[in-house]
Design a protein around this nucleic acid. Structure first.
Lengths: 136, 136
DNA sequence: GTGTCTGCAAACGATTTGCAAATTA
DNA sequence: TAATTTGCAAATCGTTTGCAGACAC
């Protein structure tokens, strides 16, 4: 897999320390973090980091197609550096987000004539195996 | 189709004027409105209406399964009184939300063992036929 | 009358904006 | 040093909360 530095260079984005660390964080942890999670986790390593920079950086990475944002309706956006099409399953008990790597339905074929598709997002909600087991 | 009054009664929800009008608005217009749209449109008819009541009512209707909320990432929630499974397509140009009545993928079968599903939401983004035509 | 519902005003919290200082090519 | 990037502080805006008065059974 491409390193964060390589990804940034390929898009002609200056690889500042903040940008590399934020993208690297997303690529390695795969934990669908929010701005606040990223900020809290990176702050010890980058003591001058500000939330504004995290917001700016993520917005820019998103515009460049390096990350996608996910909205589970909990009030803040989550980010994912895996831009391949997959389904996001959120456990309603533990709130963990699971990636389900299944090619989603071919919506394109089902749209009315004249409609063109740029992107889809499929969210699933329920209970994960871990929480299901604990409940018994 | 059930009237708003009937729907409320079937769930043992007191059919106050505000509740009936809000649910009726959603059932008849099918325009996927936000709280603000509902408030603005109903205010002339109910001059004492407050945004708080619209929020309270929608939350309660949602808990009772009479409406669903949709999040297109534009900063505010949209509401829909059609709770049957269908896809929401937002045109990125005119921002209109289209209902695509296609049974979505059977995600249930594709989840790992032990996972149970309560609800899915499929959002699609692109260009609608109207905007596509105008662009030519 | 007693419990429920409404709606005002204030609080909240995620995100955005303006701008000056710091950084980098 | 000129252009870009960062980050503080304040503003913004959708939503929530506390509570007092209005309403319904």
């Amino acid at each position: 897999m491409e390193t964060a530095q390589e990804s940034l260079r390929s898009k002609n984005i200056r690889p500042s320390i903040q940008r590399v660390r934020i993208l690297d964080y997303l690529k390695t942890r795969k934990n669908h973090p929010t701005v606040d999670t990223i900020y809290t986790d990176l702050f010890p390593q980058i003591p001058t980091l500000s939330r504004t920079t995290v917001y700016n950086t993520l917005e820019m990475l998103k515009e460049n197609g390096l990350v996608i944002s996910l909205d589970f309706g909990d009030g803040s956006l989550h980010y994912d550096a895996d831009t391949s099409p997959h389904i996001h399953f959120e456990c309603e008990k533990c709130k963990h987000i699971y990636d389900v790597f299944v090619a989603p339905d071919d919506i394109k074929k089902k749209l009315p004539a004249g409609f063109s598709l740029s992107r889809t997002q499929l969210y699933a909600f329920g209970t994960c195996a871990k929480c299901d087991k604990n409940a018994k």
